[in-house]
Design a binder for these strands. Structure first.
Lengths: 260, 260
DNA sequence: TCGAATTTGTGCGTATGTATC
DNA sequence: GGATACATACGCACAAATTCG
């Protein structure tokens, strides 16, 4: 069976399947050989055939549908997300504009709550004065959609010390709903003049992978973003995007020359 | 055996081990229970115990050493890499300055070659005129070190059409060796006035993981960077950093107000 | 240096549950 | 309902790496 057993059998079987995908013989949405089928064809055990398929799944090249089969799922060319601190556009938030430029139908759903900030969030928002047990931020959880599919998660925190008593306390309420943080803050006299984004990457949690319809253990790019107005933090957010779908684009000029 | 089988057994065992790590009972470097040990202790099969450990490994909370055991490996606090287009500093390149600020001994090794650019690199450098089979770029492969350990890979391409005949044809040669691209280009009258970075994440290749001394299959953050001088591309680079060691920091002001 | 014991990795077999068609 | 598929769980065996006396 093994004229050369440098590499484990299940990896060699995975190589073989990967090659059939790469060559175009198996295309997007095609069904890969089933576990029993592979085992019979190659004269290997079902456990080993299953291991080989798991390799492709963990690489994001395939998805398993219980009871149905394992299907090729080619990574799309990643979309570009332009990271910029402020872009007033007819399409609303920066995400909406990026999707619109790429000819995709964008949408989002959200849920806002007034809550007490965690120590980390308090730190990121520069909330030094104690408010006891009082609620001090509005937390909004977003799911962003492209062509109806969830593609980005974001959790945003805005300090009540900034927004309390203004018409924009709730991010997705009122005239400026869906227009993005920058425009909303501008409307209450707090123009955003600086931002910081900390970019990292890690495996997605089970919940993130499920909400973004990715295979368990998919790689996620994470962004911790903070917006400033005159050295005051007015918003901070945790953003999660699947690494196989997005490339983040930063550029030297965007801080100086907002696009119109 | 299962009074409630909502979740698979191997996931519940993984939960249990994860909790022992989270609580501090098992610390960095400690050995997790062995597969046969777990199986005996919990009255489960070795296959199931092995599956449970694989979950923690895939989450990056543990590493397996064949023949030795499976060990807790808590993620370190990642270092920050400040991404900025130009920072003239007494410490040379931006990488050197970041490491110096964090009190780490920085260094690098490199290798330069004059080569013919690939189509992708030609595109990134805006080289539209054909040069036949002639060599048209200087390619430099860097390994950056922190405290003697390799932490970042970078491959840089500079078009000969810009640097030919100048004292800085070879990046790490002459007076400005180690001073960074920005200073070198400035010295030949090509000040860098714009940059674009495309940030993505993926699994590291076998070679990258080995050169950066990471476990096979570690997550890497990749940056495709291009420097411009008056709308002319003067350099492009592919940068690879291990995701568990670095966070990239971008900020709105750095494009306008270079640090001194 | 050698060998015994332990551990992970791989591969085989089987069985059952459950989802899909 | 029946056939097929994946997911989980059990069992066993051997190879390779490591550790330790």
């Amino acid at each position: 069976m093994n004229r050369e057993d440098e590499r484990p059998l299940y990896l060699r079987v995975a190589d073989q399947l990967r090659e059939r995908i790469r060559s175009g013989e198996l295309q997007e949405g095609d069904r890969l050989p089933s576990v029993p089928g592979l085992a019979a064809d190659l004269g290997i055990s079902r456990s080993t055939a299953s291991e080989a398929l798991k390799v492709l799944i963990s690489e994001g090249l395939a998805v398993a549908r219980s009871g149905s089969g394992t299907f090729v799922r080619l990574p799309r060319e990643p979309q570009r997300l332009i990271r910029a601190w402020y872009r007033a556009t007819p399409y609303g938030s920066p995400f909406m504009q990026d999707m619109h430029r790429q000819g995709r139908e964008a949408g989002w759903s959200y849920e806002s709550k007034t809550v007490q900030a965690s120590p980390e969030i308090r730190d990121r928002l520069g909330l030094t004065e104690s408010t006891g047990d009082a609620e001090d931020v509005v937390r909004t959880d977003y799911v962003f959609l492209a062509d109806g599919e969830p593609v980005m998660l974001s959790t945003s925190w805005e300090p009540l010390v900034v927004t309390r008593g203004t018409p924009i306390v709730l991010p997705e309420d009122g005239m400026l709903a869906g227009r993005g943080v920058a425009e909303r803050m501008l409307s209450i006299g707090m123009p955003i003049d600086d931002w910081v984004e900390e970019v990292a990457a890690r495996l997605g949690t089970a919940e993130e992978c499920e909400r973004l319809r990715r295979a368990a253990g998919s790689i996620m790019v994470t962004i911790k973003r903070t917006y400033y107005s005159a050295d005051t933090q007015v918003e901070t957010a945790d953003i999660v995007v699947p690494a196989d779908r997005f490339t983040l684009v930063y550029s030297g000029k965007m801080g100086c020359v907002p696009e119109q």
